[in-house]
Structure formats: C-alpha cells, structure tokens
Simulated assay, not measured.
Amino acid sequence: MKLTTDSRETLDVITVEANRIDAAVAIQFKDQMREAVVDADGRVVLNLARVDFIDSSGLGAIVAAMKLMPDGRKLELAALTPTVDKVFRMTRMDSIFAIHDSVESATQSAI
C-alpha cells in the first residue's frame, strides 16, 4: 500500500496508489493515513481515483482514518470509481463524507 501526499494552498491531497483497499492492506492503510494526517492544518482530501475495489475492511479503514483527523478537521473523498461509489452509497457512508467528483472539484470547493 502506497499513499502520496500533495500539499496545496488550502488542502492536502492524499492519493491511494493502489487498486484495492481490502483486508490485506487495511491496517497498513490506517497506519499510513495516521502519519499523513497527524500534522494536517487544512482540509484533507483522499483521492480514490485508482481504487477499483473496496471491501468492508477497507471501508472500515477509511472510517478509522476519518476518526484520526485532528480536531476540527474532516476527511473528504474525491474521484471515486463507480464500484467504490456504489459501496459508499449502499452503506450510506456518502452521508458521512463529503464526496467530490474529482480532486479539482474538491480544490475549488469551499467546504
């Protein structure tokens, strides 16, 4: 599991450089997210453009990452593939997270 961070003016974009977030990588994902968000000053957007599959462990890892956010900060999601988007909608997690169509739309949003 590899995550890359791109710090922009008002937000940090964390990109998942893998096609799956599942039980095999969930703990590693949480650990890397903890490191990535510990010093977050502004908004944090998780770019899921490359993720084609997510299972319940992966979904739980993203929720755990949300809970790791510093006080007053929220984890936003961007660029969900159709399969991943379906999982978020079926589990109603789309009501918990701000979900953007793309990283660019997240950057322009003032949430």
Rank of each mutant, 00 (worst) to 15 (best):
M33Y: 10
A106V: 08
D101P: 05
L3P: 06
S7N: 11
A36S: 15
A110G: 07
G60P: 13
T91L: 05
T81I: 08
S57W: 05
S109I: 08
I96A: 11
T5Q: 13
I54Q: 05
D41L: 12
A26P: 10
M69A: 08
G72P: 06
Q28T: 13
T4V: 08
I99R: 03
S102Q: 07
D71G: 11
L3M: 08
V13S: 01
L3Y: 08
A65C: 10
M90K: 00
L3I: 14
P82M: 00
G58W: 00
V103A: 04
I96G: 04
A78F: 13
F88S: 00
S102T: 11
L11S: 09
T4G: 11
A61E: 12
E76N: 14
N19I: 00
R89K: 06
A24I: 09
V103Y: 09
I21K: 05
R20W: 04
L80W: 00
L80H: 10
V84N: 00
T83M: 01
K67A: 02
V13C: 04
V103R: 03
A106T: 07
V45A: 11
A79R: 09
M90I: 02
R73S: 09
A36P: 12
V13M: 07
F53L: 07
D71H: 13
I111V: 09
